[in-house]
Design a protein around this nucleic acid. Sequence first.
DNA 1: ATGAGTGCAAATTTTTTGCAGGCCT
DNA 2: AGGCCTGCAAAAAATTTGCACTCAT
Lengths: 146, 146
Amino acid sequence: MDKSQPENLKNAGLKSTLPRLKILGLFESGQERHMSAEDVYKLLLSTGDDVGLATVYRVLTQFEHAGLLVRHNFEGGKSVFELNEGKHHDHIVCLQCGHVEEFYDTTIESRQKKVAAELGFEVHDHSLHIYADCTKTKCPHKPRNV
Amino acid sequence: MDKSQPENLKNAGLKSTLPRLKILGLFESGQERHMSAEDVYKLLLSTGDDVGLATVYRVLTQFEHAGLLVRHNFEGGKSVFELNEGKHHDHIVCLQCGHVEEFYDTTIESRQKKVAAELGFEVHDHSLHIYADCTKTKCPHKPRNV
DNA sequence: ATGAGTGCAAATTTTTTGCAGGCCT
DNA sequence: AGGCCTGCAAAAAATTTGCACTCAT
């Protein structure tokens, strides 16, 4: 977890470039675990790191293929990425604001496998998605950037 | 369940028109429970019922708002619709071909509520999504129409 | 130097919207 | 008749791709 970023990129067979280091750095900073391409792009702009949006998309996809990031398509239309830290977990997503929380529940895990088997499916490592609302009245999280 | 389609539309406050009847008919025929706008559009074309793609999108959205259909955004990018028959159920989706199966598991339901509550969420009626593979070797279902 | 990487603009894909004309009630 | 509906084309939103130029090794 303390491996320097250039090393991470090398191991992934990717050349160590500024855009890649910046983007990986954002995810490793832990500020925001789940980000869309647009989120990353705007964050970089806000810190003066001018990276093209197309490059953000390309790098995110490369990182996904390299196993550094995991891509999710939650309800809402845009792809969301998170650091691949090896430990399996599921996600619960707010339908109002898009906020994402992670969880791991052994009962759900085993039950999920059972249900899948009965229906002729085999669960591998993909996250299960629960969709809900942060609260019944008003959503405490930031409004979904649609 | 045997209510005539025009009646269903009337009850939803929608004028009974040919495109609407055709589209609702497709879902009620039970041939294919889960369809994207493109799926519906192509099916209608194949049966000689020429309906504009824009109309398909508009009608599907209207039906969703009227509570006749439910919209899902599974991994894969496109919205998928299914008839709203009132009975809650969850979905397991094949990551290879996009095939969808429905299920209902009381253990998962209760556990889902518990997990949500612990994380400050409230689950209403939205489907939970499990993502898996039809089989480990080759997918028996139709290839995903990407 | 040299091929991978980047930025910009144009192209794709999925979905929405404006507008003129057409069909329910 | 009057307005909701539809079709077509253009607009939007998210993502991908072509191309000339730049940077890492």
